[in-house]
């Protein structure tokens, strides 16, 4: 009996708000991202004015992880696939940059596509196995494949092994080094985030995206229409892997260092937390979730070294009491029942 015999299982992820909802929701889908990206664009100038220049580096990191969280939301929120190995895609993108640099390849026009392709290919191969299963099996298997990438990175003694790999200079473009300037790098990351945001929104609104969302709600119905849910979920899985690979390449450039720790399953868990905090099934929600998560981490760690003692119970409380994510706690409820 193949796992796909059990196609009519209830979907993993709870129901999302209606794609076509009230006017308030339509406005939110326009206003929130516009405000969000405007805030990111204005941040460096504001940081200068306030004399808080560390904010630029912090916000760069936020945007990179927001990109990774967004890519996870494509399969988790829209596809209903609880993938617990997403950090591996991020790490593979980062390692692609690190290993390429170690081997003398620093041209961005080659390195970035390489990072994206490597992560997407890994997603395609592991997804082809994982998507044969559902439910807890899927969660465990994606977790296991993520851990496989983690241990493989540790075993790469030529590329730093357990200690990680320092990158001596950011990726070049056509011989120039535009990314070396932190301010310029900030806007490159912002540009990537904005472009991926628009692309991701286009994908979920497309015919493909409709099938993906339908497969979350009822794989059996999708098959009865003559569409193989597996093919669409696998494609989405690979696309999400590619986006996360891009985030990884940016992360490697940001920290100028890659390490197996990028792929630890705790990092995968953190990405899920970001998506949930922002409310699944909304890409700007994933960005907000990354801001909230990393902001909390920053703020709490100023409070105490043992901030996780506070964050762990906070997460449990969010799960038990705020099921639609933090956005659902805002006064404007997107649901129209």
């Amino acid at each position: 009996m193949t796992a796909r015999a059990a196609e009519d299982r209830p979907p993993e992820a709870p129901a999302l708000p209606a794609p076509a909802g009230t006017r308030a929701r339509a406005l939110g889908r326009l206003l929130v991202p516009v405000l969000l990206f405007a805030a990111f664009a204005a941040l460096p100038a504001a940081a200068d004015a306030l004399g808080q220049t560390f904010l630029v580096s912090f916000a760069t990191r936020v945007m990179i992880l927001a990109l990774a969280a967004m890519s996870l939301d494509l399969i988790l929120g829209y596809g209903g696939l609880v993938s617990f190995g997403h950090a591996a895609f991020l790490g593979i993108g980062a390692y692609a940059v690190g290993i390429a640099a170690e081997e003398g390849l620093t041209e961005g026009l080659a390195v970035f596509p390489l990072a994206i392709a490597a992560a997407a290919l890994f997603a395609l191969a592991t997804g082809a196995v994982s998507l044969r299963t559902r439910g807890v099996y899927f969660i465990m298997i994606t977790l296991a494949f993520g851990q496989m990438a983690f241990f493989t990175a540790i075993s790469l003694s030529a590329y730093g092994g357990d200690d990680g790999l320092t990158i001596w200079g950011r990726t070049e473009f056509l011989g120039g080094t535009p990314l070396e300037d932190d301010r310029a790098f900030y806007f490159v990351v912002l540009g990537c985030l904005a472009a991926c945001y628009l692309l991701a929104r286009a994908i979920v609104a497309s015919r493909f995206g409709r099938v993906l969302q339908a497969a979350r709600q009822s794989p059996g119905r999708v098959a009865a229409l003559g569409l193989d849910p597996f093919a669409y979920q696998l494609a989405a899985y690979a696309i999400a892997g590619g986006f996360a690979g891009l985030a990884g390449a940016l992360l490697a450039n940001h920290t100028e260092f890659v390490s197996p720790a990028y792929m630890s399953w705790h990092r995968s868990g953190e990405l899920i937390v970001m998506v949930i905090l922002g409310g699944m099934g909304s890409f700007h929600g994933a960005i907000l979730g990354a801001i909230v998560y990393l902001g909390l981490e920053e703020a709490l760690s100023h409070l105490t070294e043992h901030w996780r003692l506070l964050f762990g119970p906070f997460l449990v409380l969010v799960v038990l009491h705020a099921r639609g994510g933090l956005l659902s706690l805002l006064p404007v409820r997107p649901r129209d029942g």
């Binding site: 988790l76 609880v82 439910g135 705790h266 868990g269 937390v273 043992h306 996780r308 964050f311 799960v319």
Partner: peptide, 30 residues
């Protein structure tokens, strides 16, 4: 905690128990 999660989605279970891991790992370190 667990008792409140049995009837919830696998995703909620994963997140809730992940929160416990974060807490207990840090508690052990502390």
């Amino acid at each position: 905690v667990f008792r409140r999660l049995y009837r919830r989605s696998h995703l909620d279970q994963v997140l809730g128990t992940f929160g416990i891991i974060i807490f207990l790992n840090e508690l052990a370190r502390t």
